[in-house]
Design a protein around this nucleic acid. Structure first.
Lengths: 195, 195
DNA sequence: CACATGCGTTAACGCTCATTAACAAGGGGA
DNA sequence: TCCCCTTGTTAATGAGCGTTAACGCATGTG
């Protein structure tokens, strides 16, 4: 992954601000004029960059799901020979990084999915499902006694735990990350022991 | 607490359906006509029972927060002489019951708070804060090594875990409840050990 | 019987807001 | 220099939707 050094394009500015606003007040709660104002242009000027408000949301949600899945696949590939526990730790770490660095997107992720066109919604759901199943596979390697339905529920529950970052205070990033990581592992351990 | 046996009043029907619809498609995503249709009357008929759409949301959110807090206080009082761990288990159990029995309300709880009038929002936040602090106190009794900020973060994270029920499949209620309970305790144990 | 009150109905109003129309300015290439 | 493409602007349009108006009809009570 190349680290970006060039200036963000206008499209990217818009997406970033739109994500923040959508997360703060919901998709319907934000007007196009506000989004425009957030990047210094006004209202209908956005239509030079996006087909419409829906298109912004779609691009955001598809982008999130894709990024999460891609990152998880990469970590899975990189940690090839490692112990299963280490792979799970890597997944957790990746998800925490994302939740801490892109809080607005995390909020959107499970809040505004319904507003998408059918095709986009299906795509996002498919990416999400792949991401979940990838986790389920790793969890079942670490805890062989756990059945598949229990593992899937546990993964969803841990996502809920990790995605709680928007509600958290702002102590040091490292402290928060460490706390969440330990809690996630502890939660998985608890189902692994009693399956 | 007296168990209701009489038929639900129209107001209650409306609140129940409104909660479901708001949770499914968001406050702005559902029209008054839909809410009316859900209880067999149409559109403006709702105004015989509520001052407006906002009033329904306000009553729902205040009701949720109050109910959660009241239940927690009751459990705290009932489990007076018990070990701290048992009290924490009781809180967890109460929250799980609520999350499983009133999924729509749980969803609303942290999704649509901003749409309230200032006074209502303050009230809800105050109730939520009391609920959190009550948990924080119990957690710190069970795990004396944990500092207050960490305990508060941990409580929020566990709420995220427990509130993940809307994303879960539907195995038996008991199985889901047991799984969530074990995971919540495991998550707390993980911060208690390494504080 | 008369009448108030509770609970609905449908029609109209008015506001918000996404989208489109019409127009302007900058800037790089032929 | 002359275009034309990009990227804006403001004004107009049109739909959706919360709310209110005006009216009907039961029911129980004096």
């Amino acid at each position: 992954m190349a680290t970006r050094t060039d200036a963000p394009t206008r499209r990217e500015q818009i997406l970033k601000e739109a994500a923040r606003l959508f997360a703060e007040r919901g998709f319907h709660g934000v007007g196009v004029d506000e989004i425009g104002a957030a990047v210094g242009i006004s209202g209908p000027g956005l239509y030079r960059h996006f087909a419409g408000k829906d298109a912004m949301l779609a691009e955001l949600l598809v982008g999130i799901s894709g990024q999460l899945l891609r990152g998880a696949k990469r970590r899975l590939a990189e940690a090839d020979g490692e112990a299963p526990g280490a792979v799970l730790d890597s997944l957790i770490e990746g998800h925490i990084d994302f939740a801490l660095d892109d809080r607005p997107l995390i909020t959107l992720h499970d809040r505004e999915l319904d507003r998408l066109r059918d095709s986009d919604r299906k795509l996002v759901r498919q990416l999400q499902r792949q991401y979940v199943e990838l986790w389920v596979g790793v969890v079942r390697e670490v805890y062989p006694a756990v059945g598949e339905p229990a593992a899937r529920s546990a993964v969803h529950a841990v996502f809920g735990l990790l995605n709680s970052t928007p509600h958290l205070g702002r102590p040091s990033r490292a402290a928060t990350a460490g706390l969440l990581h330990r809690m996630a592992r502890g939660a998985f351990d608890a189902v692994g022991g009693a399956g």
